[in-house]
């Protein structure tokens, strides 16, 4: 630019010295600056290409598949809670009074069906409620950081409940209350470790409370440890069903 001082500023000279492009552009072209903040708002172009909208029939297949799996799991859990007992006050089959009273209620008041069907339907409900809550009520909380819903983590969950039931069975607990409250405390950690989502906590608390209420009148001899057991078991079951539901409906 310094050399330009010596040059005359007539149009023709100016035109010769200046690159062609200058003549085409407006004056702002050299002063335009980049707004880096807009970069952050740029949508990822790849995403719409990669993401495929699931067709209706595909979604239906997924839902049917999930329903079947959850139905089976509902029955498995009925068996599991039947098999959960300790060598003190918790007798075999005592945990399933909640499920049985629900089945009885339905049989008496609504429609007579087999117990297993009721258990299966309960399993389906438990499995679907968490993903629905995730998307409806708790959509604004982004808590994916603490939970990964892969097959492995479901296996982990299942194994931990099996391990707990084994522990309840075979350890020589002082009292049922000790075992049940130990499980209760463990449940909190398990929730943090496996899930950590608000929807599971809320629904789990609600369900364990409801199951508590349902089986309250069957309690005899001030056996409140049973109530704690029921709360523990149904909370943890819901945690597993929630994970299962999220896993099965992840593509929906």
């Amino acid at each position: 630019m310094a050399n330009n001082n010596n040059l005359k500023t007539e149009d023709s000279v100016s035109n010769l010295v200046k690159p062609t492009l200058y003549s085409i552009y407006d004056k702002d072209v050299t002063t335009s600056s980049t707004d880096y903040s807009t970069l952050r708002n740029i949508p990822n172009v790849n995403e719409p290409i990669v993401r495929k909208e699931k067709k209706l029939h595909q979604q239906i297949i997924i839902i049917i598949y999930a329903t079947v799996v959850l139905f089976i799991f509902g029955n498995i859990f009925a068996v599991l809670c039947n098999e959960l007992y300790d060598n003190l006050t918790l007798k075999r089959g005592i945990l399933s009074i909640t499920l049985h009273s629900i089945a009885k209620y339905i049989n008496d008041n609504i429609i007579p069906v087999d117990k297993n069907i009721v258990f299966g339907i309960l399993g389906i409900l438990c499995g679907f409620i968490i993903p629905i809550c995730d998307n409806v009520f708790f959509a604004r909380y982004n808590y994916n950081s603490n939970s990964s819903n892969d097959f492995q983590s479901i296996l982990k969950c299942l194994n931990s409940i099996l391990g707990i039931s084994l522990g309840i069975k075979h350890l020589r607990w002082k009292s049922s209350m000790q075992a049940s409250s130990a499980w209760g405390l463990l449940n909190i950690i398990m929730w943090l470790y496996f899930d950590g989502s608000l929807s599971t906590l809320t629904i789990g608390s609600v369900i364990s409370f409801v199951s508590c209420v349902i089986s309250f009148n069957t309690i005899t001899n001030d056996n409140y440890s049973l109530l704690v057991y029921i709360m523990d078991f149904y909370f943890f079951s819901l945690l597993i069903f929630g994970k299962l539901g999220r896993y099965l409906l992840r593509n929906c």
Partner: peptide, 9 residues
């Protein structure tokens, strides 16, 4: 060539 970078910008 002047203005080329500016125009691409």
């Amino acid at each position: 060539e002047g203005c080329l970078v500016a125009s691409a910008m």
